[in-house]
Simulated assay, not measured.
Amino acid sequence: MRKLLPSPSRSPFGVNWSTSKRLAAVAVVACVLLATATVVAWVSGSRDDGRPSAGAAAAPTASSRSSPAPTPETTAKTGSVAKPPQIAEPVAYAKAAARMLWSYDTRDTSRDQQLAGMRTWMTRETKYTDWASVSGQVPDPLLWSRMADQDQHASAHVTEGHYPGAFKAALADDPSAITEAYIYVVTVNGKQQIAWKKGGSGAEERAVTLAVQCRPGHDCTLAAIAPSVTQ
C-alpha cells in the first residue's frame, strides 16, 4: 500500500482513526440526539398527547409511502451511493444503512456526492436527526482526493443486526415510550472489503450502532450513529 493511502484497517472510509477515537468524536454531537430522542423514547413515562400505549412498542412492518424512481439528475448528485430502501422494519433498515455506510467508490463518486447520497437516508425531523455523526464518517476533501488517486473503493457484507440489550431493557420497562419519536437502536455487524490500484485489497470486521426512526405508516430513516456500541 502506498503511504498516501489511508489504512483499510481503520474507519469505514480508511481514515486513520481508531474505533474509540471515532466514537469519541461523535459522542458530543450524538448526545444531543440521545438526550432528546432516544432516551426520551425509551424511558420517558410522561405523555401529554393522548396517544394510546397498548401495543405501541411493536415495530412497523409495512410501508405506505412510495418514493419516486431516481432520475438521472438525482443519480448525478449522489454518485454510486445506494438509494434508501422502502423498508418499515427497524432492523432491516439499519442493516441496509450500515451496508451503505461501509460502501463507497472514489472512482465514480466525489466527496460531495457521497455526502449528498448519505443525506438522503436521514430523517427530516430536525429534532431527532444528528447529521454530524453520520457526515463525520466521510474523510476531509484532501484525504478523499488521495483515496480517489488510488481508485479506492469498498463493498460490505452484513452478517446480522439486533436490538442492543440496553434498548430492549428500557423498552420492556416502558413499552409505550417509543411512541414519542419512534426511534429504534440497532447494532449491525458485518465485513468490509476495500480495494485500490494494482490489486491492493484488505478486509475487516465492522460493527456499528444506529438510531433509526420508523414511524407507523412510513418508511424508516436514519437518525444517527450512536456514540458507543452496545451489545
Score class of each variant (00 low, 15 high):
E160T: 12
A132H: 09
P139H: 08
S135C: 08
S145Y: 00
E160D: 14
M118C: 05
S155D: 13
I194M: 14
S133K: 06
I194F: 02
A170V: 06
K191T: 14
Y128D: 05
Q152D: 08
W131I: 12
I178S: 06
I178H: 03
S155M: 07
D140L: 10
D151R: 12
S155F: 03
S176D: 06
S176H: 00
T126I: 07
D140S: 14
G117H: 08
K191H: 08
Q193P: 00
Q114S: 12
A132W: 07
A177I: 04
T129M: 11
H157I: 05
Q152E: 13
H157G: 01
S133H: 10
T187F: 00
Y163F: 14
V188D: 00
L143H: 10
G199Y: 08
I183D: 09
G165C: 02
A156T: 06
A170L: 11
K191E: 14
Y182V: 05
V138W: 06
K168D: 13
A181E: 11
P139N: 10
Q152K: 07
A148V: 01
S133I: 10
A148E: 05
G190I: 02
D151P: 00
A116N: 15
A132C: 13
T159E: 09
S133Q: 11
V138E: 05
G117N: 11
M122F: 05
G199M: 07
V134Y: 12
Q193V: 05
S145A: 11
L143I: 03
L115W: 03
K198S: 09
L142H: 06
A195N: 06
Q150G: 00
M147V: 00
R146F: 01
G117P: 07
Q113G: 12
Q193M: 07
Y182D: 15
N189M: 03
D140E: 09
Q113Y: 14
D140Y: 08
M147Y: 07
G161M: 01
R146E: 07
T123G: 07
S133N: 12
Y163M: 11
Y182R: 14
T159M: 02
Y128I: 13
L143M: 05
A154L: 04
D173Y: 13
M122D: 04
I178G: 04
V186D: 01
A166G: 02
S155P: 02
Q113C: 12
A169Y: 03
D149T: 07
P141S: 10
Y163C: 04
Y128C: 08
I194L: 08
K197V: 14
V138C: 12
T159C: 02
F167Y: 15
Y184Q: 09
G136V: 11
I178P: 06
T120E: 13
T123P: 09
E180L: 11
V188T: 01
H162T: 06
T123Q: 01
K127P: 00
D151V: 00
S135L: 10
Y128E: 09
V134H: 09
Q152I: 06
Q192I: 10
S135M: 12
L115K: 13
H162D: 07
K127E: 01
T187N: 02
